[in-house]
Design a protein around this nucleic acid. Structure first.
Lengths: 123, 123
DNA sequence: ATACTTGCAAAAGTTTTGCAGGTTA
DNA sequence: TAACCTGCAAAACTTTTGCAAGTAT
């Protein structure tokens, strides 16, 4: 049976308060406001644990390692701003996606990344 | 003005002979058949150069670093087999993709990754 | 009391950089 | 010969692991 530590609680709170997926470094930064002694190894260990237990979803971002978000979100994809680098969640999914797989290939998942400028950085 | 070295030529040949995008380690492995003394630093330096000059396209694969392919290919996406991990090129693109961006966001590119089992690994 | 967790520091994996020597034009 | 490149080894990063000490139940 797992113990509910301050550290683990702080991580989950951060993820729920965030506007989008966070990197381990961002999670460390924000969580230290609640648990100043927190170390990066603990962040990685807990993220792994929380992903295994199904509370957190891992998002592997091309060229930028893994980001994390609460697992209880509906199916969605992401937009990354080329200027501020922030990741935004995009609800929905193009309908034709499942017909792209070639003959004989069995499709069981997909990931879409949109790139451009967010509304803040467009101005 | 750049010099045409054996090393650089070997890299480009490998990429053209490959059935899909290659990782730096794979490129090193295959290129050493042509230039046995080749070092990994040279692979990284030349890939960077070839990308900058527009001869090679970098594909940042979620969770697996960068892969490389010749830049003269038509717009396409990729399928990764969960079993053998190989990357396959997928021609085409779902039509609804451009309408996913939220109001006020300027979209200038996108990347799609399909996951599942390739025809070899389905059997 | 026992099982689980933490922070630190060391280790491991990947990509980049400094440099002396070698290659290309 | 002058500019450019290479291989090696060291450096920089990011992520993982071992361990002694601390915390939750």
């Amino acid at each position: 049976m797992k113990h509910k530590t301050q550290q683990r609680k702080a991580l989950m709170e951060c993820l729920h308060e965030a506007r989008g997926p966070l990197s381990p470094a961002e999670i460390l930064w924000f969580s230290r406001e609640k648990v100043p002694s927190l170390g990066i190894a603990t962040v990685y260990r807990n993220l792994k644990l929380l992903v295994e237990e199904g509370f957190v979803a891992e998002l592997q971002v091309p060229g930028q390692g893994s980001y994390y978000e609460p697992a209880d979100m509906d199916h969605h994809h992401h937009f990354q701003c080329r200027n501020c680098k922030q990741l935004f969640c995009i609800p929905g999914c193009p309908p034709g996606i499942t017909s792209l797989a070639p003959e004989g290939f069995k499709l069981d998942g997909h990931e879409i990344f949109l790139y451009g400028r967010c509304s803040e950085c467009t101005q």
